[in-house]
Design a protein around this nucleic acid. Sequence first.
DNA 1: TTTGCTGGTGATCGACCTGTGAAAATCCTG
DNA 2: CAGGATTTTCACAGGTCGATCACCAGCAAA
Lengths: 264, 264
Amino acid sequence: MNPQQTIRLAVIDNDSGFVTVLAKRAEAAGWQLRQSSGAVPPRDLVAMKLNALLLDPVLLGDEGWEYLDRVAAMLPDLGLVVCSGRSTVAQRVRGLRLGVDDWINKPCHPEEAIARIEAVTRRRRQGRREFEAAPVAAGELEIRPDRFQAFVGDEALDLTRREFELLHLLAEERGQVLERETIYQRVWGYAMAHGDRSVDVFIRKLRQKLETRSPSWAYIHTHFGIGYRFDPEPAGIVKEELRPAPDAAPAAPSQVVHKTFTAR
Amino acid sequence: MNPQQTIRLAVIDNDSGFVTVLAKRAEAAGWQLRQSSGAVPPRDLVAMKLNALLLDPVLLGDEGWEYLDRVAAMLPDLGLVVCSGRSTVAQRVRGLRLGVDDWINKPCHPEEAIARIEAVTRRRRQGRREFEAAPVAAGELEIRPDRFQAFVGDEALDLTRREFELLHLLAEERGQVLERETIYQRVWGYAMAHGDRSVDVFIRKLRQKLETRSPSWAYIHTHFGIGYRFDPEPAGIVKEELRPAPDAAPAAPSQVVHKTFTAR
DNA sequence: TTTGCTGGTGATCGACCTGTGAAAATCCTG
DNA sequence: CAGGATTTTCACAGGTCGATCACCAGCAAA
């Protein structure tokens, strides 16, 4: 359901041409990319919370093997792909045995490098369960993906699967206005038919259940002509946004700006 | 730390020279090897309980891609390595995206093939730690992997193997809602066919046996539209939600309610 | 204000989901 | 190879959920 989870990749290489093209591809795929043209201490790699690392061992000098060994040992969850110049079978075997996940030779098509990194990451992830099992807190709410349910205190909201997924999506994009088409696409998984009101209906159901368990908070805000925004606000804030905000230009002329009217 | 756990590998290739050398190496490493010089139905692959599969797509003819797709979909846990003759970048990328874990070109050194299969297998096993020996306690239950059996006090529940594995999995993920597909994948070892009701049937059997030996506890909870959750709860928790509707009708009479429809 | 949309709400009906019993197919053991 | 145990498949019965619809209220522009 969430196949193309964004990948955090670091590239350690100084072949600027190759890296440039690679970066372009990675960016197009929505990956987060870090680059370096010199060895990065494993300690720093840890801090980057990477999913995958692509490196050319030529930059590592004599300590290449040792470095690979250390990285593989210190970051067992990291997808480790080596992209080297000429290499012998013995070298590749040694690397693979050391913990390298894949070893490519240059010249190498960036698309293939991307695909191999994807493959490595895919397999890595598969073993690791729950990538998004992290609970989300919002106002009095706690959204727990491990239970497919939201709670206020220890009382469940009694959400349906669809309801939960909608709420989860909104909460993950907290503060963002999401258009109906976007919401539908991401929750239902396919394009919304013209005139479909499903999203509205489910928003209503969510609001009802939220109102039941957490009456003093407003969570879902309607943006007329656009979509919905999730933002927990204690009641009492009747409204009155429209801050003159002398800075950024208002997006569209006479656009509805943060005018939040809640149900009821 | 990760002693070369014996690997069950199948090789589908008709390059007898290559296969022979490979077999020699594999045998030396203590792997269990199956060979075939023609396409093997995915169904049979399932029965082999493989860890990895090495194949040359030239044997698959036109249906190569389809075959790869089906195998990858049906056996997500299988390490899939392609070893082809000449191949283009586009082909390799397509394969990798389809679910192939690694793609090697012939001529290929057997040692490297072995190393890559190892790497692929290692990658996937990583997440899967097997700590079978640890007994799990839950409510009145004690689940003892060393016996492949669960007990209440000293009375065994008399579980069959599948029943036990299902219960064990659920208990290890106590509190988590597991989707049917996940359950099937992890207990049966391959992807669940659409419309398969096996999980439901086994859940029923488990509930029956649990009810027999431990009537005053509710262990397995159904989440509508999702799957099941294991969470031992002393019976009697009927959790009367305060319904807004002033409803005088007493709930259903004394129905056999060992099915706890908790949160959806 | 009127007019044309957009969004909120309640209700409905069919499709889908789960529990269950039992037959059919398969595996396993002696 | 037979006989029993185990697993898979099938069909049916309720129950739940979600896609739609109709209708009304609120917003925006004229």
